[in-house]
Design a protein around this nucleic acid. Sequence first.
DNA 1: GAATGCGATGTTATAATATTGCGTTCATTG
DNA 2: CAATGAACGCAATATTATAACATCGCATTC
Lengths: 163, 163
Amino acid sequence: MSQTPLPYRAHNHRACVDQALADAHRICNDAHARLTPTRERVLELIWQSHKPLGAYDLLGALAQEGQNAAPPTVYRALDFLQQHGLVHRIASLNAFVGCAHAGHRHTGFFLICRACRNVLELSAPQVAAAVDKAAQEEGFAAEDTTLEIAGLCPACQRESDHD
Amino acid sequence: MSQTPLPYRAHNHRACVDQALADAHRICNDAHARLTPTRERVLELIWQSHKPLGAYDLLGALAQEGQNAAPPTVYRALDFLQQHGLVHRIASLNAFVGCAHAGHRHTGFFLICRACRNVLELSAPQVAAAVDKAAQEEGFAAEDTTLEIAGLCPACQRESDHD
DNA sequence: GAATGCGATGTTATAATATTGCGTTCATTG
DNA sequence: CAATGAACGCAATATTATAACATCGCATTC
């Protein structure tokens, strides 16, 4: 784990995918959950892309590989992966990304570049704390937080300066 | 209808809807935008419900009133209302709510009760600040923030205690 | 008053996303 | 090995959203 490489930073992508898969195996093993071939393949596709993938993107990729998959196949795999904290759903995009902190408790939080479509997952305790505090002041019992920030990543800001 | 409680607080609902419509008229007037009958009716339906309404809920309501509306009619009205800050889209629900702070600059932020489905919109500067800070630390230029918190409102927490 | 431009609306079709239900297969365990 | 339950295949359908193009009404201008 540690040192998780990020979209905005060059990294050895193959290694990063392998690491994610290895983590997933470990996590599922510990949870007595079955990381079946389809589930693993879906997770791998998501990590390979490193950008949010829609369910039907995944479906298309599986179809190309000869797996005769229907929508439920993909949605079930995604449900499983979400339940085990291996992927996140980005509500504002109807798409899925690999979880950068699988296995850790965290309130994820996403920076979504509208230009290059990369997504950076942060785990910012001070943000989570501010949110919890605001909720508590209303007597609200928070269970699940969706926090997605669209904008421009550093690289794409430079790009748009050139115009 | 009647007596639909404003999220977590009793209030005169008819007056609350009227107020929202009056505000909307003023805001559109100031912006030289046309709050046409369909747009106004959609906004009114949203406020009357006081809970998130889906586009097809609205479509159904319009149909019942004899308006022969197709999906684009509703989506266009919703686009207009969003652009003028009169409604918000709740990404995690694919639904729409009236904006509680129309006309004010704000980064909205929603507490969504999973039991009664009421939504409370907050404008919490300290949360917005924490989010901006975290984004800036990554060099990310934030443009649009989606912050939606699902959980249980105070009333529904008491309900579930009774079980 | 005809011509023009333009925002709003109507209409049809279709795209994109997601779920239900049911029967079958397969791994595990007793 | 039989029973169990999770996972999967498959067909159909539900839900959410957009594209493309025609039309209407109204203000401006000639």
